[in-house]
């Protein structure tokens, strides 16, 4: 008994030392000197993936880490202390929760988006327009009302007089898109850029412009150690090259370049 417990202490110490040593090894090597974490609304997935390459080519010393989720999820993560350099949301409301906490200043509108109705490529529910959703036999998906796409969808559905409820409220716009792509629902409401990202896997049906909702895409530099690298990312977004990438992915231009948001 005594012999064992005496042996156990050095063994534990050795294990701890090994673990610490391994962890320390990871920090060395010839990796980029610093990391910039960018949190972005899921609708920005393809655009930011593209821009990551551009950024890292211009700044090889910075490793960009992208994380995509619903804007409201990301905003809450930032409020709860998630370390990040940039937050990009698909509306102003979720951005406001971060700014009001004093975690970032002067958000910039860098693009806009609008909703579009999508169906699986073979359109099993024979959906031709938004009013076809007002039928309890039609299974359609929207985003949770807390997410920008969900808030916009609620407004659009109300304006279109659709009262039949959706079968599911998905967490982010890409989750909603996924349900349509997989053919699990007859239709879904997503942003125009998401419909474009899905390509031939979905059929996009435009929504009457008068009823549609245009939502701004907003980025902010978060307070923290990465503000310089983060500012470079936001500058890239509103640069000519950044705007070109956004347009190519189906986003609408911002009302005026680099308009300040509340």
């Amino acid at each position: 008994m005594t012999v064992r417990s005496v042996a156990a202490v050095p063994l534990t110490a050795g294990l701890v030392a090994t673990v610490l040593g391994l962890a320390g090894c990871g920090a060395g090597g010839d990796e980029p000197a610093s990391t910039l974490t960018v949190l972005a609304a899921s609708s920005l997935t393809d655009v930011f993936d593209d821009l990551e390459g551009t950024y890292e080519a211009q700044h090889p010393d910075v490793d960009v880490q992208l994380s995509f989720d619903s804007s409201s999820t990301l905003a809450e993560q930032v409020v709860q202390g998630a370390p990040a350099g940039v937050l990009a949301t698909a509306d102003r409301a979720t951005m406001r929760t971060v700014v009001e906490e004093g975690l970032g200043a002067e958000p910039v509108v860098f693009a806009r988006n609008e909703l579009v109705l999508v169906t699986p490529a073979d359109n099993p529910g024979n959906i031709e327009g938004i009013t076809d959703l007002d039928d309890s036999d039609v299974a359609y998906a929207v985003c949770v009302p807390e997410a920008p796409c969900g808030a916009a969808s609620a407004t659009l559905l109300a304006r279109s007089g659709v009262t039949a409820p959706p079968v599911t409220e998905e967490d982010s716009v890409r989750d909603t898109l996924g349900k349509v792509v997989e053919g699990e629902v007859d239709a879904g409401l997503v942003f125009a850029s998401d419909a474009q990202a899905a390509g031939g896997r979905v059929r996009a049906i435009p929504v009457p412009a008068a009823d549609n909702v245009r939502t701004p895409d907003v980025a902010v530099v978060l307070d923290g150690p990465d503000t310089d690298a983060a500012q470079v990312w936001v500058d890239l977004l509103i640069s000519r090259a950044g705007r070109r990438v956004l347009l190519d992915h189906g986003f609408l231009p911002a009302p005026a370049a680099a308009e300040k948001s509340p």
Binding site: S70, S72, T73, A75, E76, A141, V144, E146, P165, P166, V167, T168, E169, E170, D171, K179
Partner: peptide, 19 residues
């Protein structure tokens, strides 16, 4: 998925409310 009344059980409701 998640919709109140049909599929949103307590754990899903907690997840929906957390943000």
């Amino acid at each position: 998925g998640s919709y109140p009344g049909t599929t949103r059980t307590m754990p899903l409701a907690i997840y929906a409310a957390r943000n």
